[in-house]
């Protein structure tokens, strides 16, 4: 009896100690080879081979690669990486293993095309991916929308964008606004409205958290750009009227009979620099804004810490 209790105690202690030790070692191993699973695509980069190696469980493997792609992008983005070379191979493998994984194409449209640090800066790859997606899912209007989006936002190719929206509008059950977008591309006017409409659509068309956050960031940036544009015009008007710059943003607001001090999407009031520039108070909160930032400011996008 005593013997058995002793053995049980020793064995129990061994379980606890060695489990803890193995967890610690595993943690060290993870530090030794960060991103190891993801860098696998450097060796195993043929979707065809992978498809065969998955022995018919290609759906599951696609899901694994999809999480790897998200993990890769999220991790590097968090570290302010300036290149995303593995994003395309990861997405390519994912979509070839499961060509109906729509969210992977949407992810590609949102993050392959924009220049770093917002994305991989590979709009051609993004278009390649979207065309592959459309080929395999010709009835999904969202993919035409995303294709047009890349042409419009990243390549500024309004003709191609219009063509993509046009193609999409012909798909059964397509959202009516595709026809509208196609027309707007042709007119190529009302930049803010179009951009806002597109980012809102991107937000509504997906459940993916990263894509949605990205869209929200762009919408916020659009509002800042629009506000700053209007306020800057007001500053000019003020100067023409009085021959000097307004002393403060409050003076400007009063002169324009605004209901209060204008605020940015976070509720901070805009500020007026001594040189007469309208700026946001916390430029880091608006990584995609192109106006209202101090001169020479470099944005640090931080999705994970961004308050909603």
């Amino acid at each position: 009896m005593k013997q058995r209790r002793k053995v049980s105690l020793v064995a129990g202690a061994c379980v606890v100690v060695s489990l803890a030790a193995s967890a610690v070692t595993l943690h060290r191993i993870d530090q030794l080879r960060p991103q190891a699973t993801i860098e696998e695509v450097l060796y195993l980069n043929s979707p065809k081979v992978l498809k065969r190696a998955s022995l018919g469980y290609d759906g599951l493997l696609a899901d694994i690669y999809w999480t790897r792609a998200v993990q890769y992008f999220g991790g590097r983005h968090h570290n302010h990486a300036l290149s995303y070379n593995l994003l395309y191979p990861l997405l390519e493998i994912t979509t070839q293993l499961d060509p109906r994984l729509i969210v992977a194409y949407q992810f590609g449209a949102s993050f392959l095309a924009p220049p770093p640090p917002g994305g991989a800066g590979q709009p051609e790859r993004a278009i390649q991916l979207m065309e592959y997606g459309i080929q395999n899912n010709p009835d999904n209007w969202k993919l035409y929308y995303d294709l047009g989006f890349v042409y419009y936002m990243n390549l500024k190719d309004y003709k191609q964008a219009a063509a993509a929206f046009e193609r999409g509008s012909k798909v059964p059950n397509a959202h009516p606004f595709l026809r509208l977008l196609a027309a707007q591309m042709a007119e190529h006017a009302g930049e803010f409205d179009t951009a806002r409409m597109m980012w809102s659509a991107t937000y509504q068309n997906t459940q993916d958290k990263l894509i949605r956050q990205n869209a929200v960031e762009h919408l916020r940036a659009l509002r800042v750009e629009e506000d700053v544009t209007h306020l800057q015009q007001a500053v000019t008007r003020f100067g023409e009227r009085t021959g000097r710059l307004p002393a403060s943003i409050a003076e400007l607001a009063a002169a324009e009979s605004l209901p209060g001090i204008p605020v940015d999407p976070d509720g901070h009031s805009y500020k007026l620099s001594p040189e007469g520039r309208i700026e946001v108070r916390v430029p880091d909160d608006f990584p995609f804004a192109t106006k209202g930032l101090p001169p020479g400011f470099k944005p640090h996008p931080q999705f994970d810490s961004q308050p909603q």
């Binding site: 049980s8 064995a11 129990g12």
Partner: peptide, 15 residues
């Protein structure tokens, strides 16, 4: 790692 993990599982088996 392999040694720790095998010890853990083996101790569990003994237990």
């Amino acid at each position: 790692y392999a040694l720790f993990y095998a010890t853990m599982a083996l101790s569990g088996a003994v237990l």
